[in-house]
Design a protein around this nucleic acid. Structure first.
Lengths: 138, 138
DNA sequence: TATATATCCTATAAAAAAGATAGGAATTAT
DNA sequence: ATAATTCCTATCTTTTTTATAGGATATATA
């Protein structure tokens, strides 16, 4: 399951996408509208920023806006920024690789091979732009 | 990421699949060979049994064996038995449905629509028999 | 029938992760 | 100068995960 952090982050991204104003939007406003604990959201926005998903403007009248076009943002990007690896086991993660403590030989590990296939296909799904997924249906 | 419990469970399933003996295999033997804490494994086996993935024989010379043909067992089944929902958010889970506390209208919720599509495709991948995934390559 | 080897069951402890909050420093528009 | 805001570090709380403990129940076999 997705963490609350990642869910809040996606809500935030969608909210910013819906409000492509000239002015940035404050964390306070997002927290209120999306019912996210304010201080928690601050942490989330910091992570989103460090992963280049949002940009910020400091000071009074400051706030946040998307750092790139929504068509360039995927669920996978948000999940990685918030929760880490997409892969179900660490030894086949591309960005968060870690060997399994007990593993004797990755080359022949069947669990690894099993989940390598799964990861490839899951990434394919999660890498699609949120715009192509979140769009309204007629 | 997969929980250790689910990972141990998959190791156990693969182990049982590799040893289709006439005699059942004891938890002790599995724990030793697969480096799984014995008492933890007991809990796992109980869950696997209650989900009809393994069967057991009690008493001396007792133990465990797969409850069905490996071709009928998927990663999804094991994940559901150990960790619960496959879906990334509870409101689109088929077997573990829960409404989101704050959600005002599921019909129009974009997050929900977003992850409904993702779930459909993820389930498709994870429902495939482990035999088709875990098989050796030439 | 006694014994050893198992599964089965409930409960609890320990460790780790997730979720949330606190307090204040730095920045900037008005 | 002030108010609104991002930014940063630290800590607390709650929940989940991982693991262990102790014993009840079943059964093959010597």
């Amino acid at each position: 399951m997705l963490s609350k952090k990642a869910k809040y982050a996606i809500k935030t991204i969608l909210f910013l996408q819906d409000h492509p104003d000239l002015l940035p939007i404050s964390a306070k406003a997002i927290a209120e509208k999306e019912h996210i604990p304010y201080k928690f959201l601050e942490n989330i926005l910091r992570d989103l920023k460090s992963h280049q998903l949002v940009k910020s403007i400091r000071g009074a009248e400051g706030g946040y806006a998307l750092a790139k076009d929504p068509s360039q943002i995927s669920i996978a990007q948000v999940m990685r920024a918030m929760d880490g690896p997409i892969a179900l086991i660490p030894c086949i993660s591309e960005r968060f690789y870690e060997s399994c403590a007990e593993c004797e030989d990755e080359e022949t590990c069947r669990i690894r091979r099993l989940f390598a296939e799964v990861r490839t296909e899951m990434v394919e799904i999660l890498e699609r732009p949120i715009t192509t997924l979140a769009k309204e249906r007629e």
